[in-house]
Amino acid sequence: MSQPESPPVSEPFQALVRTITQALAGRAVDASLEAWLNEEWGAQSSWYRLMKAECERGVREGWLCTREAGGIRYGRVLPPGPPTAGFSVDVVDMHDVVGPHHVHPTGELDLVMPLTPQAQFDGTPAGWKVYGPGTAHRPTVTQGRALVLYLLPEGRIEFTRA
């Protein structure tokens, strides 16, 4: 039996993704990138407010976070390719939960969007958290519920047993 198809991803969401991924094209995935993202595209920016609203709408309308495992709703929204400057785009919906351990062969850029005001993702409140190439973690949301949009260069992620 096949699963019903999700509604298509909204054009406003795709346009917001193109805006950020084109701005990221060619930049090193490191601590200076995190600082730049938070300065230019952080929680104080209009881009952030629009993206958070689109993600909330996507969850409500059923085109984001279409799968569930271990108390985490998740889903790949867009594959890596030219429209996303080679990044894949995923969104997770987490509420006081620890996710599966994984490695970031090419890095991971996380946009933290708390739905509960005090919620944090890996100790980070609203804004960006960047993991460089070769890093690993167990993604954790504490103090409530948050949506996290994550960009993976080349779409690369390796889940482990650690």
Rank of each mutant, 00 (worst) to 15 (best):
P7G: 08
V29K: 03
W47A: 00
P7N: 09
Q3A: 15
S2M: 11
G58T: 02
L37Y: 02
Q14W: 08
G42Y: 03
E54A: 13
I20Y: 05
R67P: 05
W36V: 01
W41D: 01
F13D: 13
T66W: 05
S32L: 06
T21H: 07
A15H: 15
E40I: 06
L64K: 00
S2V: 06
E56S: 12
A43M: 06
P12K: 00
A23D: 11
E68D: 10
M51Y: 09
P8E: 04
T21R: 00
A15M: 12
E68Y: 07
E54Q: 15
C65P: 07
R27Q: 15
E34P: 01
K52A: 13
P8M: 04
W41I: 03
F13V: 08
E61A: 08
R57V: 06
L24I: 12
M1L: 10
Q14G: 06
R60G: 05
W41E: 00
A23G: 10
R57N: 14
S2Q: 07
A43H: 13
W41R: 04
L33V: 02
E61L: 08
S6K: 00
W63V: 00
E40G: 07
C55K: 03
S10F: 09
G62A: 10
Q3D: 11
V17E: 02
A35E: 01
C65H: 01
E34M: 02
Q22K: 11
S6T: 01
L24T: 06
L24D: 03
S32Q: 15
P4V: 02
N38Y: 03
D30E: 07
E68C: 10
I20A: 04
G26M: 11
A31N: 07
Y48R: 00
L64Y: 01
E34G: 02
R27C: 09
Q22V: 07
K52F: 11
E54G: 07
A31Y: 08
T21A: 05
R18P: 04
R67H: 12
Q3I: 06
E39K: 10
A25E: 15
E61Y: 04
A15C: 09
N38P: 05
W41A: 00
E54F: 11
A53S: 12
V59W: 12
S2L: 09
R49Y: 09
